[in-house]
Design a protein around this nucleic acid. Structure first.
Lengths: 353, 353
DNA sequence: TGAAAATGGGTCAAAAAAAGTCCCACAAGG
DNA sequence: CCTTGTGGGACTTTTTTTGACCCATTTTCA
């Protein structure tokens, strides 16, 4: 008779517990980000009847976790504390801790952080991931280093969730690579600036037109100002980047059907600031631009933080993080599960909606 | 924002959880002791509709915790493991651990063990207490010592729950005191024999008629055989005894109304093998008999284990254990709560039915 | 400033789930 | 062999849940 962890006992004897816990946690989390949230909008968000939501809210109100006022629903201080403080226990309950252990073995990474939920079903998960990555990022920052950030919604979320508290002095924030044809909100330049503002430190941008020819790039490379910035970028001590699926990123950057088919033929599954990888982690294509030289990056950058979520990115994450050493990986539960599935490891844990 | 223990978080966000957990735990515990148990008899036991119980059983069956067969309901191995293994987590959840801490401060005792539930409402609790005390008892046993046990239902439960596994060699089990007019099943002699059989060791009994005069006792004292046994008893290295309320014990031993009124006048609240105590722990009356000399007992006995349950015994427990050093105290949740209430300490914990 | 939209609260009927109450076939024990 | 207790099934009644409203108020945006 070996003693299982108490969480397993709880799940055995009260099987409806994870459902209740998760449902309310997601509700509180949503309120936390969407406050003041309306009853109807919440019901619409969770695709659930208005009355069932009302009952849940009633319970939360009785527990003193939410204020429910004319203007909407807000978290009480107790609710705020709960939604942040519950996280480690929730991870334990969902078996995410053991999942993190497994991912450590599976990938070339020193630390894994799985946040509960599915980014594709609940956008709040992205912000939670951002919060987690932001915490790690702050711990990596040391005086006088260069922090390089990539574009994408994930990194934007990190910037959003960074508390605006001054970082160690002398830090410079730069984009990892410039001119990749992203939407402006998710451009590396924009995010670098955003992060720098939050950290109350300086930044340097790399403004490049999209899709330049190789010759033009060569010429730009000799421009003193650009060369100076590139040098800064390539002396980065911390790198924060997201990972995209090859197809999505190609489309988002305006590739034609022909190019996408070429990528498929070449076996591209993942993308990191303009470089496309196949499943073995080899660069099979890249968008012409300037920035970090990916080839030997892992040797020079002290801390590489990767953030990516959603089950559709599982393959891409394996391709990149499974073949290139990284220090920190932040992902969501659905991506983690998918990676485990592809990796042939199955855990008997509760599934999250 | 201080981090509360996770259990408090769980109670906040899923307030119906303790109810579910406790209900099913009690159900499993009952099945464990009453197996094979019938659906109707269980419903009658818990004073609950047959259908509600049927639904609970359905859930437990789905979880693989019970076998439900024609002959009745039995625990599966998983169920057995759960009902024993869940205990520490349950105590944590109910705040019994903190309660134990408080009782340690309040009473003169080195170790406290509070078992969940109310002995007066659920007889199974007595057996759980017996199990807990039995475990402690075994740990106290060393070769060649004398173990003295008192009478009462609580000590009988300890004997019942002792696994019949050979104890260290040379142990002698004796009754703490003889001839107190108890019902035969709960007489110290009987329990001593029962315990000895379980421990596969020898025992010596002290057969005395009830209610003897002081002169007769003096004479018996000089009988060589009796003197020899008394010497054994007073060399006890381990003492296990229960505690009774003064009134109950007086009645059970056939006292008249007049005597009971006298006890009340003298302020007797508790009783330990024939000695009646007032609230300050002073002996105010005793049933004439032979056995352990209570006065200096605490000086000579290495380990004194006390077992008592039920809220009505709270006063008696305080009187005895609050004034005389004891080593181990096993009690039930209801007694513990009542003691805390009398002691002026209120914990905000969930109440158990 | 004013209208439109969104808020919580309340109500009421329909629907679903739960609960109470049987009876039945079967197995065990005296 | 019969009595007693067992689980399972079926049925009705009751309770709860749910969905779909409307209302008064507040907020928001033009």
């Amino acid at each position: 008779m070996d003693l299982l962890p108490g969480e397993d006992y709880l799940r055995l004897i009260v099987p409806e517990f994870p459902e209740l816990l998760l449902g309310r946690y997601r509700l509180l989390r949503r309120i936390s980000f969407a406050a003041p949230a309306g009853r109807r909008s919440l019901a619409a968000y969770f695709q659930v009847g208005e009355k069932v939501l009302r009952r849940e809210l009633e319970i939360l109100r009785e527990q003193g976790l939410i204020y429910v006022e004319k203007r909407g629903i807000t978290l009480t201080p107790a609710g705020e504390e709960l939604v942040t403080g519950l996280n480690p226990y929730l991870k334990l309950m969902l078996g995410l801790n053991t999942m993190e252990q497994e991912l450590l073995k599976l990938l070339k990474v020193k630390q894994v952080n799985v946040v509960p939920g599915d980014l594709e079903k609940d956008e709040v998960v992205l912000l939670e991931m951002g919060r987690a990555a932001a915490k790690i990022l702050r711990e990596c920052l040391k005086p006088d280093i260069v922090l390089a950030v990539s574009g994408g919604t994930s990194c934007a979320a990190v910037a959003d969730m960074l508390p605006d508290l001054a970082a160690p002095p002398g830090i410079t924030v730069v984009p990892a690579r410039g001119g990749l044809g992203e939407e402006v909100d998710y451009q590396a330049n924009n995010i670098a600036a955003h992060v720098a503002r939050k950290l109350k430190t300086r930044y340097r941008l790399l403004h490049l037109p999209d899709s330049l020819s190789q010759e033009t790039l060569e010429m730009l490379l000799h421009e003193p100002k650009i060369a100076a910035i590139l040098e800064r970028i390539n002396s980065a001590g911390v790198l924060l980047h997201g990972i995209g699926t090859a197809e999505d990123m190609a489309r988002r950057r305006g590739a034609g059907e022909e190019e996408i088919r070429m990528l498929q033929v070449k076996g591209a599954v993942g993308e990191v600031f303009g470089f496309f990888f196949n499943a073995r982690g080899e660069v099979v294509e890249c968008i012409p631009s300037l920035g970090l030289y990916l080839e030997d990056m892992s040797n020079r950058v002290d801390n590489v933080i990767v953030i990516a979520g959603g089950s559709k990115k599982a393959e891409a994450i394996i391709a990149v993080v499974g073949n290139h050493p990284r220090d920190h990986l932040v992902l969501d539960e659905s991506a983690a599960r998918k990676i485990m599935e592809i990796g042939g490891i199955d855990l008997k844990t509760v599934s999250t909606g």
